[in-house]
Design a protein around this nucleic acid. Sequence first.
DNA 1: AAAAAAT
Length: 510
Amino acid sequence: MSDNQSATAQQTPASVRFEDFGLSPDILRALTDQGYVHPTPIQAQAIPIVLQGRDVMGAAQTGTGKTAGFALPIIQLLLAHASNSASPARHPVRALILTPTRELADQVADNVKAYSHYTSLRSTVVFGGMDMAPQTAALRAGVEIVIATPGRLLDHVQQKTLNLSQTQILVMDEADRMLDMGFLPDLQRIINLLPKQRQSLMFSATFSPEIKKLANSFLDKPVTIEVARSNATAENVTQIIYKVAEEAKRQAVAHIVRERGLKQVIVFSNTKIGASRVARELEKQGLKASAIHGDKSQSERMAALEAFKQGEIEILVATDVAARGLDIAELPCVINYDLPYNAEDYVHRIGRTGRAGALGDAISLVTDKDARLLADIEKLIKKQLAPSELAGFVPHAEHGSERRPRREEAPGSERERGERGSSERRPRRDEERTSFSSSASPQGRTAGRSAYGPAPRREKIDPWFLKPYEPSQPAPANAAENRGQLANGTSSGKPQKAKVAALLGGPPKR
DNA sequence: AAAAAAT
């Protein structure tokens, strides 16, 4: 055993220093502040390539320094081409960084701010669930770099507080998630607003073959950067599988936390309801737990994450909102309360632990029904995961109030008073709902015109835009009509992979 | 099947 164990992840010669990349002294000074001297492998590879202006498809585990890998050279590029003598009346955004979750956007923005601290470059973060006004003010004041989630970004474009027509650099962080069906329409709208001549960078821990193809349709002769095996799980993470009955899972989590004396652990649930229930159960058992998921208000989400980082909360029970990119120092363990439906998400989730060379444990609870999911994961990570018994765990029968949690009680019911359903009533979108009546009126929804164009949001789509132009194949008769708008409902029933394959023009798999 | 992302 030696420090060389992590040599595969640290292939950069120790002699390489940030100073060797020709970065501005102002950037180097910020790095010194952060205590950074030597680049990580992904940084050593990405920085020169991004500086050359090339497109990049970067496959790297989280915790490998991805963010600095793109942020540093972007800052450098913007500085190098900064002073156009006379400053223009309006300040166009010059670099755009997109992320799939608000928390990740916030985190990336913090890093960008730190790296550009001594430069003249300004940056701001833009995401939903928060007051528009401060974001609008920051954008109006002028920023060169925007970090954003897609929906709110488009909102600002619509409000004309944001202009993407001069944006030379686009980054998609956690690109595989950005490219999934839920995000694609927004992503395409955003890309349509950008100049065609631009530099595009995509980063993710995993790139499935389908996503790789899709990604390539957005990139121009990209350089592929790969640190460690693609889709590999971190070598310093020990993976453990426990066989547990479905009804005993919550008790099992509590048992594991107690048994191991865990002071920092993320428990992943596949559902928002599940996350809340697990958190509540753990709290009931006297453990310091809190849930984070998309039905919580943004302030609750941020409070939970912050409390967890501060150690006030020991167990963060999360949906996949927390699966990607979040950098939480020294997380020694993650628990999959459920196995994720997508094998790739398993890789992302367990990437929350064992970061930056530290050791970590990834514990997954499986039931009999999970055999298929487990097999998919084993196939992806090319590793066998043998389920074992959870030693010393004796589930006791559950009873009474816990048996049948009722979600939709009338206000003022007895239970409400007894155990303060911890914000778990419904998505609470009522905080600033000033225009409720207008949007609820029958014509309000359909008549309200969206600046995004005619397409309704979050509907089934036929993404014509993803099909590469193939002169050899006769275009479908309605292709011309579909151009310029998203048609509805042609591919609703198909599983996602088949959809993506179809988008790429390949024959449907049978 | 589920989650995320504007209101």
